[in-house]
Design a protein around this nucleic acid. Structure first.
Length: 274
DNA sequence: GCCAACGTTGGC
DNA sequence: GCCAACGTTGGC
């Protein structure tokens, strides 16, 4: 689901033992490392405010596609597979991650391409508006990068993610979505017709996964990549943000401080009438 | 296991 | 369309 999610492709790691889940189509995934995320309990006030403000739109619709960059790209296709609980994501997904405390909420940033781009005859475009129009949880499939995959597997219900528009005129954070379903097997991996098809992956051995997300808010203004770059001086909250350290990673980690700072930037821009 | 060649992402 | 960053592939 991530809008045009792109996934980066990479295959590297093998799937954990757990079960699998996810699938997302279009997203691009990237890989990279991540920095630590902080946990805290819940969202900060600022976050909450923002989040709540609009969380009204619930959407649930068939799935859109996201962007995923990369080796495979992932965009979401439309089939959504919302079903399944049958494929649960590997537990191990989260492995690798420092343990999260009970009730801890984590934050993420997922990229999608808002502009049309044809991949294997299919448009992988997926903007925040596309997500907002969904009436059902969207599968963020198509991610084909191991670092991105690990981030997807570490996501838990209740986590929040920034929706980032990439590969467009004004790249930047455009809104917020919530993780409403943990990663399931990304079935687009073995669909030859999918833009995210991975010939090396079979249904016997799921390798890619995708969580379910829902739209929560669209900022009135875009917190642009340009702004984020200006805001990442050493010693500042965004100094180590993974988005800028691993610029090609389509699904990155966002610490609580980074989250709060970006929310603040969005609020300031809004207040300034930008 | 090293590393050169090559492919992708994605900003500009 | 260019190019930097970075990942993958495959020879050795």
């Amino acid at each position: 689901m991530p809008p045009r999610k792109r996934a980066a492709a990479a295959d590297a790691e093998a799937p954990p033992t757990k079960q699998q889940k996810k699938t997302s189509t279009p997203a691009p995934s990237q890989r990279i490392t991540r920095q630590s995320v902080r946990s805290g309990g819940t969202a900060t006030p600022a976050v909450e405010a923002v989040t709540e403000g609009k969380a009204t739109k619930a959407k649930r619709a068939p799935a859109p596609r996201k962007v995923t960059p990369a080796p495979s790209k992932a965009k979401k296709s439309k089939e959504s597979r919302t079903s399944p609980p049958s494929n649960a994501a590997p537990a191990s997904a989260a492995a690798g991650d420092p343990e999260r405390q009970p009730g801890e909420r984590r934050y993420w940033l997922m990229k999608a391409e808002p502009n049309s781009r044809i991949e294997k005859g299919i448009d992988v475009k997926f903007s925040i508006d596309d997500l907002a129009a969904k009436t059902e949880p969207e599968t963020w499939d198509g991610i084909r990068n191991h670092v991105a995959k690990n981030n997807l597997l570490a996501m838990k219900k209740g986590d929040l993610a920034f929706f980032y528009h990439s590969n467009c005129k004004v790249p930047g954070v455009v809104g917020i979505m919530e993780i409403v379903g943990e990663a399931q097997v990304d079935e687009t991996a073995w669909d030859p017709k999918s833009p995210y098809y991975d010939p090396k992956c079979s249904s016997d051995k799921p390798k890619w996964f995708c969580p379910l997300v829902e739209f929560r808010k669209k900022f009135n203004t875009i917190v642009t990549l340009e702004t984020l770059k200006k805001e990442c001086q050493p010693g500042t909250p965004l100094a180590n943000i993974q988005l800028l350290k691993l610029s090609r990673l389509s699904v990155s980690k966002v610490s609580r401080d980074e989250w709060d700072h970006i929310i603040k930037l969005a609020e300031q821009q809004e207040a300034a009438g930008e």
